[in-house]
């Protein structure tokens, strides 16, 4: 039967052995870290962005590399998914971009601070995370709207910067709003123009935000959307 001194030896020996193994693995992790995290790409802006990230406890709602509070989306690949331009608009007034939804504090960042936060998130997005987050692997049920439509070659710049963050077209884009395939068949240019100008006035309670667009940019988008037939 096990004696007390044997039990003590088991505890002390095990502790020593596994602590040593842990330290060795730590040394190797530190050695591999610059390559795996692509540290050479970490700009001064990204470093400053991390401080802004921490100063405002962004992790208190969001997750980054899956670590945080599960109240707001994971931001590991956010720059790669939504693009810097969209994020700049979003950060200017988060609630305006998701009207009537879960709220985010409006932080009144300067343009430089926005760029720094985005630079930080962009750097994080390029860390080798062993392929996390995984791609969704269950196909949603078919919606019946899967007829391949001819896509116009030229997408306006604002379309790729803003619209795509939430809408799909030809299978690529976000999943917040409805897909835009064939939107020109459903709505004419006049309606689309009114819609983009001020969505809530056309449809009260919509989650579509009023985007900061100049008249030219809006007209360009309307022409593009109306052509999606």
């Amino acid at each position: 039967m096990l004696s007390k001194s044997q039990a003590r030896a088991f505890f002390l020996g095990g502790t020593f052995l596994f602590s040593a193994a842990f330290l060795i693995l730590t040394v190797d992790t530190l050695r591999q870290n610059p390559t795996r995290t692509k540290e050479q790409n970490m700009s001064a802006a990204a470093r400053a962005g991390k401080l802004i990230w921490e100063k405002n406890n962004c992790m208190g709602c969001h997750t980054l590399l899956g670590e945080g509070a599960y109240y707001a989306p994971d931001l590991t690949k956010i720059v790669q998914q939504k693009g810097a331009e969209y994020l700049k608009v979003f950060l200017t007034d988060p609630q305006a971009m998701y009207p009537g939804q879960r709220r985010m504090v409006k932080y009144n960042f300067t343009d430089q601070e926005k760029e720094q936060v985005i630079a930080f998130l962009e750097w994080v997005g390029n860390i080798d995370t062993n392929n996390w987050p995984p791609k969704p692997n269950i196909e949603p049920p078919a919606t019946g709207n899967t007829v391949a439509l001819a896509l116009p070659a030229e997408k306006p710049e604002k379309y790729t910067q803003l619209c795509m963050a939430c809408h799909k077209l030809g299978g690529t884009g976000g999943v917040v709003g409805p897909a835009l395939d064939g939107v020109g068949k459903k709505y004419d240019a006049e309606y689309l123009d009114r819609w983009l100008k001020d969505p809530p006035s056309v449809k009260a309670g919509t989650t579509m935000p009023k985007l900061p667009l100049t008249d030219n940019e809006r007209q360009e988008l309307v022409r593009f959307l109306a052509s999606l037939k």
Partner: peptide, 14 residues
């Protein structure tokens, strides 16, 4: 001690 590794799956560690 080595179980700490379950926090090191997806954060950029080997």
């Amino acid at each position: 001690i080595l179980g700490t590794g379950h926090h090191y799956y997806w954060i950029g560690t080997p």
